[in-house]
């Protein structure tokens, strides 16, 4: 059980939770505030990560510029997805978005020339070349690590540094979203979620607001994709399975739909369960080997969600009144 006290291990868990916080905030904008059932959110993460990696490896562009372009491209895809689908009813929108997510993943899998195919980004320059895209990021991270060493000494490792960077970005995103949600802009979005006909009868351009929510969510999804790529130095289409989108739904619902501060809370609980199952090596669970035990976390996540729906359907920070009213 030494792992439980290991700072490095928990820093890693924190990084993953931070990346999922940013990712889920994107879903929060779309689902929580605009009421859009986007089941293909993982596609924006994939588009962000791939666009950046491809631009850096194949065009030699600076990582920072490539990252900005990646966010813009992801937002563009958000608009592209929204133009034909946002006029659809909620259930049709859900089906279309799940297809969108899968189309993006299959493209990444099959367009080997562009994406490296099933082997992932290591194959971006063809087999055997071992393409790298994040040298500039590692330089930046070492610089930040240098600053942190002044404060934290030997504890300022690579993972701790990443933890600080990711959570700084996540907190800034939460604060900005909080301002937006409380603004007249957020109020219009809520009115559309409540009743789009009422909103348009009050002079609101429903379609435009939904597009904005989709694009803003796509941008946050792309930022999460960038951090994912930076953290792991390598990724492949397998990292963007539809399951990832549903993890984000678990996080949003766990924290409380439409509650911004619920997202980091949900992500931390989720990260804890996800990483924590490795410590469940007590009887009778230790009769399973560790690979089998990995599936336990899915079961636990599912059970928690069922329990939450039964006893606290509004999530941890949600308001019950908002659920029961008609």
């Amino acid at each position: 059980m030494t792992g439980l006290a290991n700072v490095q291990f928990w820093a890693f868990v924190g990084v993953v939770a931070g990346i999922f916080t940013i990712f889920s905030l994107g879903l929060q904008v779309q689902f929580g505030f605009a009421g859009l059932l986007n089941f293909g959110h993982v596609a924006f993460m994939a588009i962000g990560a791939y666009t950046m990696a491809i631009l850096v490896v194949k065009t030699g562009l600076s990582l920072w510029i490539a990252s900005l372009i990646a966010i813009a491209v992801s937002m563009g895809f958000g608009l592209l997805l929204g133009l034909p689908t946002l006029r659809l009813r909620a259930d049709y929108l859900a089906i279309t978005t799940i297809a969108f997510g899968e189309i993006v993943r299959y493209l990444a899998l099959n367009e080997q020339e562009l994406t490296g195919g099933p082997q992932g980004t290591i194959n971006l320059e063809g087999a055997g070349a071992a393409a790298r895209y994040n040298d500039e990021w590692l330089d930046f991270q070492r610089t930040v690590q240098g600053w942190l060493e002044v404060l934290l000494g030997d504890n300022a490792t690579r993972d701790v540094t990443m933890l600080v960077i990711v959570w700084t970005v996540a907190l800034v995103a939460i604060v900005l979203l909080q301002i937006l949600v409380r603004s007249p802009w957020g109020r219009v979005l809520r009115s559309i979620r409540e009743d789009e006909d009422a909103a348009s009868a009050l002079g609101k351009n429903v379609f435009s607001y939904r597009l904005q929510a989709l694009a803003l969510g796509a941008a946050l999804g792309a930022v999460a994709g960038l951090f994912f790529a930076f953290q792991f130095s390598f990724f492949s289409p397998n990292d963007f399975e539809p399951l990832t989108t549903f993890f984000a739904y678990v996080i949003v619902i766990l924290g409380g739909t439409a509650k911004n501060w619920g997202v980091p809370l949900g992500a931390l609980i989720f990260g804890f369960i996800f990483a924590g199952t490795r410590f469940l090596d007590v009887w009778p669970l230790n009769t399973f080997d560790s690979a089998e035990r990995a599936y336990l976390r899915l079961i636990i996540v599912g059970l928690i969600l069922i329990g939450l729906m039964a006893f606290r359907p509004q999530g941890i920070l949600g308001k019950r009144e908002e659920l029961v009213v008609e």
């Binding site: 809520r190 009115s191 409540e194 009422a198 348009s200 009868a201 429903v206 908002e322 009213v325």
Partner: peptide, 21 residues
């Protein structure tokens, strides 16, 4: 929404109160 901005507004027979606001 454009018609509303030109000054014509309507209400509904079955009311559309935004209940969770």
């Amino acid at each position: 929404h454009r018609i509303v901005r030109r000054g014509l507004v309507r209400t509904f027979q079955l009311t559309k109160a935004l209940t969770r606001m």
